[in-house]
Amino acid sequence: MLKSSTLILCVLCALDCHGSPPKFQEETDSICRLTDAPNQCGAYCQAALFPIFDHMARLRDTLKKVEDSMESNKKMWERIVKHMEDNQKNLDRLQEKLQNQIQSNTYAPSPTISNSTACEKVGSKCFFIEKEVARSWNASQDACRLIGGHLAYFQNQEEFDAINAKVNAGSPYWLGISNFHNKNEFRYVDSNKPAEFLQWNPKDLPDIDSNDHCVALHLNFTYLRSCNIPRLFICQRDQKIL
Rank of each mutant, 00 (worst) to 15 (best):
C10W: 11
K3W: 11
R145D: 01
R135F: 01
S136N: 00
L9Y: 03
P21I: 03
E71W: 03
A152H: 07
L219I: 03
S104R: 15
I129E: 04
E78Y: 00
A14E: 04
N164Y: 05
M1Y: 12
T112A: 01
C119L: 05
F127H: 04
L49T: 10
I102G: 00
Y173K: 00
M76D: 10
S4D: 07
H18M: 13
T6P: 01
D204Q: 15
T222P: 05
Q46D: 12
I241L: 14
N192F: 14
I208D: 05
G176N: 07
V189L: 13
L151S: 04
S30V: 05
T6A: 14
K82E: 06
N220S: 06
E130G: 06
E67D: 11
L91K: 11
M1D: 09
S114P: 08
N105K: 15
C126K: 01
N220F: 02
C126V: 01
L205C: 05
Y107E: 14
A162V: 02
Y188V: 13
H181T: 15
K166L: 12
K125G: 06
S104E: 14
S178L: 08
R33K: 09
P51K: 04
N138E: 15
L91F: 12
N179K: 11
S124K: 08
D68K: 10
K121S: 09
S110I: 06
R60W: 13
C235K: 03
C10H: 05
S191P: 14
E27L: 06
L175A: 04
D190Q: 11
D29P: 03
N220D: 09
E78Q: 07
S178E: 11
D161G: 00
L7G: 05
F197A: 00
H181D: 15
K166C: 04
L12R: 08
T106N: 14
D36V: 07
T6Y: 10
C32H: 07
N90W: 11
N73G: 00
C41R: 03
L15T: 13
T62M: 09
A14T: 11
A195F: 05
T222C: 07
Q46I: 06
K65I: 02
A37G: 08
F180L: 14
Q155F: 09
K23I: 03
N87K: 15
S69C: 01
W137E: 07
N192V: 13
D238S: 05
V167A: 07
D212P: 03
A139L: 02
D61S: 09
R225E: 12
N192E: 15
K3E: 14
E196A: 14
C10R: 09
C13R: 06
S116A: 13
A37C: 04
Q95T: 13
N164C: 08
D209S: 13
K64P: 02
G149P: 00
S104T: 15
L94H: 14
K65H: 06
P206Q: 04
D54P: 00
M84H: 10
A118C: 00
Y223V: 04
T117H: 04
C227S: 14
N105M: 15
F50T: 10
K23H: 03
R225F: 05
D36E: 13
F197G: 00
A118M: 08
Y173T: 01
D54T: 12
D68N: 11
A14K: 02
P194N: 11
V133W: 02
I241M: 13
D29E: 09
C32D: 08
H213S: 15
F186G: 03
D61C: 05
P172A: 08
Q103H: 09
E196P: 00
